[in-house]
Simulated assay, not measured.
Amino acid sequence: MTDDIEIPEDTRRSRLTPPASFADPDDIATLDERITAFWEAYPDGAIDASEVEQTGETSWMVTAYVWKNGDSEGRADSTGSATRTVDLDGHVSAQFALETAQSIAISRALRFLGFRS
């Protein structure tokens, strides 16, 4: 019975920005590259990732704040958060959950300011 039904192909295009290609690692900026680009663009800026919350016995949540003008008293120009859990049986980054969460939080805050690649 369903052999007579034709379903047209959807030819609409999304207006969303396509995600970065993870097939080519050169398309992704490292944290070091983002920080270097930030300091070049905003030499008086500030980065603070000292807001750390222990959310469990082995879990950490870090929030990073970035200011373009270095005035860390005012509202941050960008923020980024990350949560990681220690996993001694897993990857190296999971063994250093706090440090990994800090790096990811800073990277996200810089990415939200436009430092993507």
Rank of each mutant, 00 (worst) to 15 (best):
T2F: 12
D3C: 03
D3E: 13
D4N: 07
I5G: 02
I5L: 14
E6T: 10
I7R: 08
E9K: 13
T11A: 12
T11I: 13
T11N: 12
R12G: 09
S14N: 10
R15T: 12
L16S: 12
P18C: 03
P19E: 07
P19V: 07
A20F: 10
A23K: 09
D24E: 12
D24I: 07
D26M: 06
D27L: 11
A29V: 01
A29E: 07
T30R: 09
T30V: 05
T30C: 06
L31I: 04
L31R: 12
D32Q: 15
D32L: 05
D32K: 15
E33I: 01
R34P: 02
I35F: 10
A37H: 02
W39Y: 12
W39H: 12
Y42D: 01
Y42W: 14
G45P: 06
G45V: 08
G45D: 07
I47L: 14
A49N: 11
A49K: 02
E51R: 07
V52S: 05
E53W: 07
Q54C: 00
Q54V: 05
G56F: 00
G56K: 03
E57P: 14
E57S: 15
W60A: 01
W60T: 01
M61I: 01
M61T: 13
V62T: 03
V62F: 10
A64Y: 10
V66Q: 01
G70H: 05
S72P: 00
E73F: 07
E73C: 01
E73Q: 08
G74D: 15
R75W: 08
A76N: 04
S78E: 04
S78L: 02
T83D: 01
T83N: 04
R84N: 05
R84C: 06
R84L: 11
D87P: 00
D87N: 15
D87H: 05
L88G: 01
L88I: 04
D89Y: 05
G90Y: 04
G90M: 03
V92T: 10
S93N: 11
A94K: 03
Q95K: 15
Q95S: 09
F96E: 06
A97T: 09
A97K: 09
L98R: 13
E99F: 13
E99D: 15
A101N: 02
A105V: 06
A105Q: 06
I106M: 08
I106E: 05
S107I: 00
S107L: 01
A109Q: 12
A109D: 13
L110D: 06
R111W: 12
R111V: 03
F112M: 00
R116L: 02
